[in-house]
Design a protein around this nucleic acid. Structure first.
Lengths: 230, 230
DNA sequence: AAACGAACCGGACCGAGGTCCGTTTAAAGT
DNA sequence: ACTTTAAACGGACCTCGGTCCGGTTCGTTT
């Protein structure tokens, strides 16, 4: 199942060789859990600092907004050296994405094994519709973080979370629109849920979320050729 | 005509009040041309430095790629102070976009008054198709620059060039798919021509441009409900 | 021609992301 | 307990985008 690949960690294993084990659930599970991958098995101090850093970062977001999350500030707030932040999260984007990891993993779980129509059980077109609505709803909550966490253009489409979403949408499309290029069409559909676009439409243009929801529903109907639900 | 608005200059007039005159063609015309707008009427030294800077920037792109275009390097190469670069172009993104202005203006002219199917005269769905193919072709040429010129997420959808494209696509959609939310659908269609996506698919995934072209054609057909041209 | 003011110039300066490398330390082996 | 080693640490350091402000220049007005 190619889902597994996309489920992988936010941060690519930076140092050392790593036996392939894509699924990483480190901070929802007791440390030392994973019997195969050793990447999540951080040294005691490293794990402690990682937790500290995430907590500090979250606090900074709450207090000063995402723009206030400076690598130096996070390091200071966690009483840790700056280098440690970069070693753990790679770069600012990595840190911000790690901050959203919980929410993302929960979402992915809902897609894979939650109740329909988001999870399996509903017809593909309807699951697609539910997917978009869920994404819009998520954006409503952590839009600022999603914006701030946007990686450089060259990396944007290789972010694990996005690859997962793409694989999910492509899978549904393959069933709902068998004659289309589901891979590329998945890209297109996902693009219309881009946080930057949502921000532009809602915050900058003052459009209500409902309009975006209607547009998504309509888009799904058009591309899959199914009739829109009234 | 709401085209006019989107045709406006790459850089918003930073200092002083400006009588509304949207169309700006400054560097294709002798300076001092515009009888209404005074923004393009730069002082002699300013105009000279602007030209120097653009030339220097273009040379740097040619020699070291877009990544080599450092504001300081450009300033040095143009034998000009760093502050001057920022005064003229606002920021790095502004400079890079100015570098693409010629090509963009030509493209816009082709859309507005060029020969069909890109220009007026062809049925809307076909013009849409031509638009996407033209965008893909353009991306093939100056992809690197387009990537480097990508603005921050909050500004991405307010860039004049993009607003123009959006208005154009929305106009065509209003005819080709009257029952859709043409504004939002325009956003969606445009997103699938995003330089970052094109880069990802062609450079990183090695997909041939033809596949993207087919996907675009198919997408237009699906969303407008018209039959795809065989 | 002289004076005037707005626009422009330039480079010192700042903040933030990211790198580097000498030092420390956790944990595995003896 | 002692050695060893790979990993983690931390903060000095670098680069680059962006700001600021005192000095200069262009174009105009009298």
């Amino acid at each position: 199942m190619l889902y597994a690949d996309a489920m992988s960690a936010t941060l690519p294993p930076p140092p050392g060789p790593r036996p392939q084990l894509p699924v990483e659930l480190l901070d929802t599970l007791p440390s030392g859990f994973d019997p195969v991958a050793d990447e999540p098995c951080l040294r005691a101090d490293a794990a402690r600092n990682r937790a500290r850093l995430l907590e500090a970062a979250a606090r900074l977001v709450a207090e000063h907004g995402a723009a206030g999350v400076t690598m130096e500030a996070v390091a200071a707030a966690a009483q840790v050296g700056k280098g440690t932040v970069f070693r753990r999260f790679g770069d600012r984007t990595g840190l911000l994405m790690a901050l959203m990891d919980h929410s993302e993993k929960k979402f992915q779980a809902a897609l894979l094994s939650g109740p329909p129509p988001l999870g399996p059980g509903a017809p593909p077109a309807e699951r697609l519709r539910a997917f978009g609505l869920a994404m819009l709803s998520r954006a409503g909550e952590e839009l600022e973080l999603q914006l701030a966490a946007e990686p450089a253009p060259e990396r944007r489409y290789t972010v694990p979370a996005r690859r997962f979403h793409r694989a999910h949408v492509a899978l549904l499309l393959r069933q709902a629109a068998p004659d289309a290029d589901s891979e590329l069409l998945a890209h297109t559909l996902l693009s219309s849920l881009d946080p930057a676009l949502i921000h532009h439409l809602t915050v900058q243009c003052g459009q209500p979320l409902e309009r975006l929801e209607r547009a998504w529903t309509d888009l799904v109907a058009r591309t899959t050729g199914t009739a829109p639900p009234e």
